[in-house]
Amino acid sequence: MSESQFLDLRDITIAYGAQKAVENVSLSVAQGQLLALLGPSGCGKTTLMRAIAGLLPLTQGSMTLAGRDLTRVPANRREIGLVFQSYALFPHLSVFDNVAFGLKLRHLDKTEIEERSKVAIAMVGLTGFEHRLPRELSGGQQQRVALARSIVVRPRLLLLDEPLSNLDARLRLDMRSQLHRLHHDLGITMIYVTHDQAEALALADRIVVMRSGKIIQTGTPEDLYERPQTGFVARFMGFENVLRVTSSGLVSDEGSLPFATQSLQNIHALAWRPHHVQLGQGPFKGRILGASYQGDSIEYLLDTPAGHLKVQSPAASPRYQPAQEIAFDLPLTHAISLRED
């Protein structure tokens, strides 16, 4: 077994009846890695997690964990933990009993159960809450109980399905760094599902982007952030201005900009981040539709012959008013080139 293939999914398809929710997905995770699975709502992330955990049968394909075929191993013997999108705490059990549940099933002796549960509860910062029932906890606290409950049994693989999606922004940041620390301390291999690219970039060793049940790009956070390969990934990574390349110029669904494209053969599309669009000078003309103040910068919505573009400029630079006609430039040096979606 090579270390780079701790978990190995081969050509997996999962269907609900006739509808395929996950299609021909192949994926591997190295031991100790944190892999982020990124994609919009409904793209099949939860479906894939449930299949890996053994809660859903594969329609096609196979998977191995540490070299062993998982397909015929029932969910309760896979030693794979899953933190549910909904937490799924046991409503009638206290925090302590929720956490100790898995240990009790393993018939460990009482002192060890107590010891390990206490450690796990402390790890997620809930010491003192042992006797509360789940309904007496806040969302973030329930979330942490779910996490403690999963890690206390030391799963070989931990799946986290949008664990932070029900928390407010501050708590999310807080929990994000706690998760990061936990992953570092415990060294558990994790798959982290999210539709928030900032979360994926901050936490992951590797990121997999999914769309409509298929994987469209895999790479390190830097890879994805700097070199998205398709318009879909580019938009996810903050390249909000995506224009197709044709012989007559740059084209969107709304219109086109004349652009010298002779040098851009075999390139499907170009994309720019908002702060790379230059305002005030350049060959193109546009009109300011709106401006929003962001603190250190101002974001403009620019109406151009090729539709709306998003532009960000430093707050210190000259301000433009809505309805104002303005020149702008799309510098090729800052563009990234994309292939077809």
Partner: peptide
């Protein structure tokens, strides 16, 4: 999913 959580923790 509460039952599923129990199964993933090792319950039949």
């Amino acid at each position: 999913d509460v039952e599923e959580a129990a199964i993933l923790l090792g319950a039949t």
